[in-house]
Amino acid sequence: MCMKALASVVTAWLLMSTIDVKAQEDLTKMLEENEPKTTDYTTATFKGTRIINGHSVETVKKNHLDFIIHHRFDRLNSGAYNLFGLDYSTIRLGFEYGLTDNITIGFGRSSVQKTFDFLAKAKLLRQSTGTRNIPFSVTAFASSVIETLDKDLTTQDKTSYCTQLLIARKFSERLSLQLNPTFLYRNRVATAAQERALFALGFGGRMKLNKRLSLNAEYYWAFREKDLENALGDPYGNSLAIGVDIETGGHVFQLHFTNSSGMVEKQFIGDTSGSWGKGDIRWGFNVSRTFSFDKRAKGMMK
């Protein structure tokens, strides 16, 4: 009798707790029905504002400043005497600021050709799901570049322009791919055989290996005449870069191999003469650090 009573109490208790769960599930359903419909924007298509040499669709967030250091060493095939390129290096220092979440302006200075560059980026479309369903992101990019190495040239002759449409889709948490139609215009070209205008199509992508590490690759196919040579007699080539992104809290480190020495569009798309096949490969890295100037962040820094 006692056992039976106990059993029935247990049964009743079990039933009651099932009803509790059921009740809470019904409540959850009611909450979900009332959930305001929102647009879920895709974030972190790429870890940084660069895939490797070229820009990604990412912009710097509002009131944030991104300080980026690019470094490229000399060619691996320059031999043991030059420590496989490590004896010489080129550098670009860049500052990029987010005017809004969608508009970035910036400037930089490269040691290659003693170059100053000014850039602007604007997000035109953002990949999203929910109330607004857009399958990819589009960012417009424009830059003007002034190469000041040759003092005898006029400012106009030193200047080049680049515009790009950056079109990217984050296919999954791991895979993002980007397509970059590019138009480059040089006021002055290195040799008479060259056209001032140059069209190119860039391809880039990243594959996340784990939460903090991704494998990146980038290729710019420049539509120039065949066998075009630069002033030194080296044939121009397309820029190819392969590397990894490592993210460590506040910094993004990008380590890579590339056949380009320039770190701005005009140079790595327009002036690359190194060939992967011959071993004209340079080791390089980008380090970026972002600072928030959001008012709410004030007082949070110690």
Binding site: D20, A23, Q24, L27, T28, L31, D40, T43, K61, K62, H64, G250, T290, S292, D294, K295, R296, A297, M300
Partner: peptide, 19 residues
């Protein structure tokens, strides 16, 4: 019944530092 359910979307957490 005193039943209560609370839930939130993690993506809707807003940080002063976007990184």
């Amino acid at each position: 019944t005193n039943d209560i359910v609370v839930q939130m979307n993690m993506k809707q957490f807003d940080f002063p530092n976007k990184l």
